[in-house]
Computed example of a mutant assay.
Amino acid sequence: MSSYNPSSPEPEGGGKPSFDKQPPQSGPPSDTPPPPPPTGSPYDSNAYGAAPYNGSYGGSPYGDNPYGGSPTGQPGGGPEAIAGMPPLGTWPSRILARLIDYVIIQVIAFVLVLPFTGFGSRNGWTGGVWLYYGLYLIYEGVMLSRDGQTLGKKAMNVRVAMLADGSSPTGSAAWTRAAVYTLPAVLCCGLWWVADGVFGVFDKPYRQCIHDKSAKTVVVSTR
């Protein structure tokens, strides 16, 4: 027989309410899925700008084509002249220009060495080669500083231009370009020129050799 008194204010079972008999709580049902997490990267907005790399450095220096479009936009990978800017110089023109300059400076070097030593010995040829390196460095630095053209480039209708705006190379750019092209060849003979040229063949989109990369220059046509 139960001793529970229905007139008592305390509930049955020891005077403590049962959790199983509590009234339902207000709010969404327990099976409602949680709200989705916020989208986007935590780096989308920060104290340094809209993105962590959109500061004062801007984008890649090679991201915007100073010639108004892709320099290899024509079928077959040929250069494309847009908005009045010159197209990139072709590889045959660039190679022939180098050969012309090489022959000119090499002949001058040997003519200067000839009065002091004969070419019947190894010393005569070695002296001519060393003089060639020195003369070529000076020759290219001076000529490019003037208008971006050596004699070979004038003959083949190409010139060196600043990548940023197509203008003639600055003095520092001209001498940097000449030094990076010439001085490493002193240590590894002509192998440096081969590696330098092959680098430019695979470079996209401006066909820059290593000496162009170092000076931020590009070779364009003057036609």
Rank of each mutant, 00 (worst) to 15 (best):
S3N: 09
Y4W: 00
N5M: 00
N5E: 01
P6E: 06
S8E: 03
E10C: 02
P11Y: 00
P11L: 00
G13D: 07
P17A: 05
P17Y: 11
S18L: 02
K21I: 00
G27F: 07
G27N: 10
P28V: 10
S30A: 07
D31K: 05
T32R: 05
P33Q: 09
P33V: 00
P35S: 12
P35D: 13
P35L: 10
P38K: 06
S41W: 01
Y43D: 13
S45Q: 09
A50L: 00
P52E: 15
Y53S: 14
Y53L: 14
N54L: 00
S56T: 02
S56R: 10
S60C: 04
P66G: 03
Y67F: 14
G68P: 15
G68C: 07
G69F: 06
S70C: 10
P71R: 09
T72Q: 15
G73S: 15
Q74Y: 15
P75E: 08
G76E: 09
G76S: 09
G77C: 13
G77R: 07
G77D: 06
P79S: 10
E80G: 14
A81W: 01
A83L: 11
P86T: 01
P86K: 04
T90G: 14
W91C: 13
R94K: 12
R94G: 13
A97S: 14
R98L: 10
L99W: 08
I100A: 05
V103C: 04
I105H: 13
Q106C: 01
V107C: 09
I108L: 15
A109D: 04
A109K: 02
F110A: 03
F110M: 04
V113I: 03
L114Y: 09
F116W: 00
F116K: 01
T117V: 12
F119D: 10
G120F: 06
S121P: 12
R122S: 06
N123Y: 11
G124R: 00
T126D: 07
G128P: 04
V129I: 10
W130T: 05
L131W: 03
L131E: 03
L135N: 12
L135R: 12
I138W: 15
E140P: 07
G141I: 05
V142N: 09
R146Y: 06
R146E: 00
D147M: 01
D147C: 02
D147L: 02
G148A: 06
L151M: 14
V158F: 03
V158H: 06
V158M: 07
R159S: 06
V160M: 15
V160F: 08
A161V: 12
M162F: 04
M162W: 04
L163N: 01
S167I: 06
T170Q: 13
S172M: 09
A174S: 10
A174P: 02
R177F: 04
R177Q: 11
Y181L: 03
Y181A: 06
L183E: 11
L183Q: 11
L183V: 11
P184G: 08
L187C: 08
C188N: 13
C189L: 13
C189I: 07
G190P: 14
G190K: 12
L191S: 14
V194F: 15
V194D: 14
A195G: 15
G197Y: 05
G197P: 02
F199S: 07
V201Q: 14
D203T: 08
Y206K: 08
C209S: 08
T217M: 12
V218I: 02
V219P: 05
S221V: 04
T222L: 05
T222C: 05
